[in-house]
């Protein structure tokens, strides 16, 4: 993480304050050559319609997902991506996006699979930037390509697979289902406003607590709630312990990357993994346990 901390973020009392920056911090670093601002959204037309000056676009479908199988990009593809957006090992990348930073935290999470730890998220994402009347431009910046050497992707620390989830169930470990109440109970297979697609069975993984991701965000500006409020939700109310292993999941892993970020960086949990297979895998698996 960059050593430069942000007073606005520090005041919110997070465990790893360097993982988050304010919109003002970003505005102050637009011309900082050691910083690369990265926008990631669900709608691929959003970045070209207007973005933070100097920011680059990382598309979750085309840039982060494997082109054929359900997996993430390889080391070589990650190196090519970093080279294309002009990032070196010393560059601090700052993610922001729509939907309360769902896709920003998702991209941040993928970057951690390649151990690019000089990474931050802009608190509030596009929503807060726009609400503050800050500039958006259509000019796409061109950066000189870099030579970026990434390690092989290391999934174990931050990513859970279905066998890890089975083991977590066996050990009666903690799972956090961040979907809506209706998805958790099996009433719906997708969040409100989306079509019911993607799974044959509804419900949740046995033993999972239901803490919708949105509880960690302020709806009016998309910022994360301060640490004291997050502790009330995840520690006091749900009884999670920062030293116990936790696995978060949703439908495809994007909403749960938001909660993964909250638990790992804002509350300082030691061992949090995001199960990106999530309900579109679990709800289609044969003979796995499901609760309603």
């Amino acid at each position: 993480m960059s050593e430069v901390l942000d007073r606005e973020v520090l005041d919110k009392g997070y465990a790893v304050p360097g993982a988050l920056v304010s919109t003002q911090w970003v505005a102050d670093h637009l011309k900082d050559t050691n910083v690369r601002i990265i926008e990631s959204n669900e709608d691929p037309l959003l970045y070209p319609s207007g973005h933070i000056p100097g920011s680059v676009h990382v598309d979750w479908t085309n840039d982060l997902n494997h082109p054929v199988k359900r997996d993430y990009i390889t080391r070589e593809s990650f190196e090519n991506l970093m080279s294309r957006i002009g990032v070196t090992a010393e560059t601090t990348v700052v993610f922001y996006g729509d939907k309360n930073n769902w896709w920003a935290t998702y991209a941040f999470w993928v970057f951690q699979l390649f151990d690019h730890t000089r990474a931050k998220v802009m608190d509030g994402g596009r929503l807060k930037w726009q609400k503050e009347g800050r500039p958006l431009v259509r000019e796409v910046p061109q950066y000189q390509q870099t030579r970026y050497h990434a390690p092989e992707r290391q999934d174990a620390k931050n990513r859970a697979f279905r066998d890890d989830v089975m083991e977590q169930i066996r050990k009666e470990g903690r799972l956090v289902d961040v979907r809506s109440r209706e998805e958790y109970t099996g009433e719906r297979l997708h969040m409100e406003g989306y079509p019911n697609e993607g799974a044959l069975r509804g419900g949740h993984i046995p033993g999972a607590a239901n803490v919708p991701w949105s509880r960690a965000a302020n709806p009016e500006n998309g910022t994360f709630r301060p640490a004291s409020e997050l502790r009330d939700i995840y520690l006091k109310e749900q009884g999670l312990n920062a030293h116990d292993p936790v696995i978060s999941y949703c439908r495809i892993g994007e909403r749960s990357s938001h909660t993964w970020f909250v638990l790992k960086y804002l509350l300082g949990f030691d061992d949090v993994r995001n199960y990106d297979g999530s309900w579109t895998e679990w709800g289609n698996l044969v003979n796995v346990p499901i609760e309603k």
Binding site: E42, D43, P44, D59, T61, N62, H190, G193, Y194, P195, E197, G198
Partner: peptide, 11 residues
């Protein structure tokens, strides 16, 4: 084309 997620495409 392929540049849109299934959820958005269905919407």
């Amino acid at each position: 084309r392929q540049n849109i997620s299934m959820g958005k495409g269905m919407g």
